[in-house]
Design a protein around this nucleic acid. Sequence first.
DNA 1: ATTAGCACTCAAGGCGAGAGAGTGCTAATG
DNA 2: CATTAGCACTCTCTCGCCTTGAGTGCTAAT
Lengths: 349, 349
Amino acid sequence: MIFDMLDKRSKQVLQAVVQSYINNPEPVGSRYITKKYAVGCSPATIRNIMADLEDFGFLSQPHTSAGRVPTDKGYRFFVDSLGAMEESRAQSEMSKEFAQQFMIRLEAIKDDISMLFSEVTNTLSALSNYVSIALPPKPEKTTFNRIQLIKYRRNIIVAILLTDEGVFRNRSLTAPEGVTQDDLDRIADYINTEYAGLTLDEIKKTLVQRIKYEKVLWDKLVNKAIEICEQALYFAEDDVFVSGLYDVMDLPDFSDISHIKELSRAIRDKHMMLKLLEELSDAEGVKVVIGNENPIVNLKGLSVVTTTYKEGERPMGVIALIGPRRMDYSKAISMIDMVAHCVSRTLGG
Amino acid sequence: MIFDMLDKRSKQVLQAVVQSYINNPEPVGSRYITKKYAVGCSPATIRNIMADLEDFGFLSQPHTSAGRVPTDKGYRFFVDSLGAMEESRAQSEMSKEFAQQFMIRLEAIKDDISMLFSEVTNTLSALSNYVSIALPPKPEKTTFNRIQLIKYRRNIIVAILLTDEGVFRNRSLTAPEGVTQDDLDRIADYINTEYAGLTLDEIKKTLVQRIKYEKVLWDKLVNKAIEICEQALYFAEDDVFVSGLYDVMDLPDFSDISHIKELSRAIRDKHMMLKLLEELSDAEGVKVVIGNENPIVNLKGLSVVTTTYKEGERPMGVIALIGPRRMDYSKAISMIDMVAHCVSRTLGG
DNA sequence: ATTAGCACTCAAGGCGAGAGAGTGCTAATG
DNA sequence: CATTAGCACTCTCTCGCCTTGAGTGCTAAT
């Protein structure tokens, strides 16, 4: 294991370097460490240790006569050792209080899923100064409550899909000729009694099957209706909540505009983003992906912290924070954890 | 009038300077003008003219030995003279073709107001490389079609507001005790027959009055229902569509991150933004606001081009482009004009 | 009125010296 | 034998100096 390569003092030094670099993005020198962190030995000794740490790949030098900078491996060690001393994540009084305030705000808007997640990402990015992303509950995790079909104007049908987690989606569709509101009501009734309590994903599958083998039996109208429902169930991929791109520009790491561009493009590339986040969404607890560990090429210079919110034990969706590699992992982890818990409790209750 | 201060050749030179600076953001010198633009005189003459133009306040020099740069007044002249030679805005073959394609895309999504306006801003910013903003039809301009109240879960009411311009808004509200779906249907029926064809604004006013003097007559339930409707009619100010912040970063004008920040903040400050845009929204045709003409302090380094889309003759809402002061006004104006016409035709038909 | 010619101004870029921060190595030390 | 003081060395950063070049304004000639 990675931890065994280092004696206690080396670990201390490594943590000191990472912490210092997180606080202030400048290469950190041996003298600085002896002054700021009580390691109890001289700069020369630190230099030796640092040279070792560099050999092991935890640190690197921008140039020969500069201090050391953490590598991805260095950050990885730092993050893993954060997890080891779990108690540091115990919530402070202040954050507990904040969580309560936050819960109250969430409760007030829990029935509008998009307001809810806007609030979540806004809060998270305001707290952390990093970019925050949230995915609403995935269709396969969302329970169907009922569908409402409304006819209006000449030949438009509006389908409103309600789930147990809040209003979800309304789509409008072109109606076939001669459909009356009564027809729509009957269709909706049928679907509501038939499918209540199933997840959207299950419904989707069932619907497709029905269409296949009942095509001949049912009349055109119902056929069309099923199509309508399927479309209504279709999940637009732009249902991703992003916030904090502005705040992040204040970080020194993004003083160069090319970095902002990179990040923007990564976020805009929602397909990619979704894939990454969904991959991580099965995991328990908070996950951290550092720099090059990241499979998305535009994100290689950045780190991602993700977790899931749940209903009971069932993970429902993903929340993520994206920031520079030298992000304040400790803070980011506890923030996202707190927020995820609040969301879980709000949706679950 | 501003036009009379200058003889024909001075105008030519001024236009040449502005055009050149728009194409390439570097101070333009006298020699360059004689080479690139056929003015028919020597650099020395141009220098004299430029000195005059500077005296009049149309041009300025970054430093003594540099070329000239347009001032806001210079741009203003340029834009106004664009308007004068209207024929230049006649659509080219290519843009006509594009407009047709665009119309087809709009038709396909016209019934979902948010998809529609997302498409509009995306297209506009992709075409122009500037930030585009669109406001959906204002409540006072939007015609009520019907409202649908749905009860679900314990005590939640979902109100879906349909307008003649597309599905508009769904809000969820806490229901008073003991309301049944039948009650809600009756209330909705009442409102639908009573208010069909009115604008949302008119309805709002009427509702408030009703509450006042019918309070004693009606039972609590209907009272509550009216409140519900009022809430449903409430217009969240975050219904602003913005796009193109990423594209704009590629412009040399925004190579400095502080400019991006400025722009971001201006956009985030939606109150301000809305106020500005609404102010301009009564105007006929395309309006241009240049640099310091702008009342919003964060926008003083930028220019805004706005226009309205209409239903028949009635202006419905605003579309805007925000870019650097040296934006390609000619292109921006014709683009936004084209898009606005397409939106008008789509919503009107 | 226009233009050629010329002196002048100023930003930008290249160069070199000096300062400063930090290292690695060696030899002394407890 | 691990630790440390001392020292030479390396590299970046900054400042000032100079040169270059683009562009001007003025004056005198056309």
